[in-house]
Design a protein around this nucleic acid. Structure first.
Lengths: 142, 142
DNA sequence: TTGATATAGTTACATTCGTAACTGTAATTT
DNA sequence: AAATTACAGTTACGAATGTAACTATATCAA
């Protein structure tokens, strides 16, 4: 009814759509190539990038819920893509470290990620791409 | 490991985070005020904005999966916020129309939406806000 | 020290989700 | 008109999710 409100111009709606489009485009890759979920991909990417971490550190890096991390770690472990090492000083903690297989999957997906990134960059244009990235980063402070 | 890939600069990741931040900020409002889910809010907003529609039309407008629409319509109907009218020419189809209660909930959430929009606009600045909206719209063509 | 509190990580449970299969109706082909 | 195909919408089912409760360990306070 009347009112100045328009769902299609509402930023949360707009943002969600763009985000889904973008996420799903890349999800097809890790899903088809390795049958991975998004949580699994993120955990793999974080471990690949930073080396051995604890589950809590992965939560901090990714913003994933700790139960998602717990489950993702479990299923990555089942594939033998990572190993746990109990921390000697604090026995609650496990260091999680990618195996050679895990690293090689990570490398393969990194390449795909870089290619995907290039595709999006070409689509938006270099300047706009940069502008968008910067704008999105500001939301961390919202 | 080496490689130029950085998850925190990866656009799908960046976008997802910004999107979640933004969506959840507004979700708190319709969730706390009416115990609604995101799908329900979107269906309500679409019917509120466009008047009576069929489920399929709602799918087209919102991009929601048809099962989500089906379920959201069912639960909005249960609250007596909408009524169904069977189409006379095509008995597969139902026109969905908000009741007075539904309209008043829509109006109330519209106001909240406009206020939220203003908040985000103030945060980003008018120019940046506009720029971001335009950039996001481009993803429809990706 | 012991008792209380905090933290790392997992698990149980109820809810939500997406895929695919289904029901009922309409449109098209033979 | 009968058979086939297409479409609107719902439902069944398995997978994924979030909340809250839990286990085990560590830290802090009395």
């Amino acid at each position: 009814m009347k009112s100045e409100f328009d769902l299609h111009s509402f930023l949360p709606f707009l943002m969600h759509h763009a985000s889904e489009k973008l996420s799903l485009g890349f999800r097809d890759i890790y899903r088809d190539r390795y049958r991975m979920t998004r949580s699994e991909w993120r955990v793999l990417a974080t471990l690949g990038q930073y080396g051995a971490l604890t589950a809590t550190e992965i939560v901090t890096h990714t913003g994933l819920h700790k139960t998602k991390v717990s489950r993702a770690v479990f299923s990555i472990e089942k594939r033998r893509w990572l190993k746990r090492f109990q921390d000697e000083n604090d026995r609650r903690v496990h260091r999680l470290d990618l195996t050679a297989q895990g690293k090689s999957a990570f490398t393969s997906l990194c390449e795909a990620g870089i290619a995907y990134d290039r595709k999006v960059r070409d689509f938006l244009g270099e300047d706009e791409f940069k502008r968008l990235s910067d704008l999105l980063k500001r939301f961390n402070d919202l």
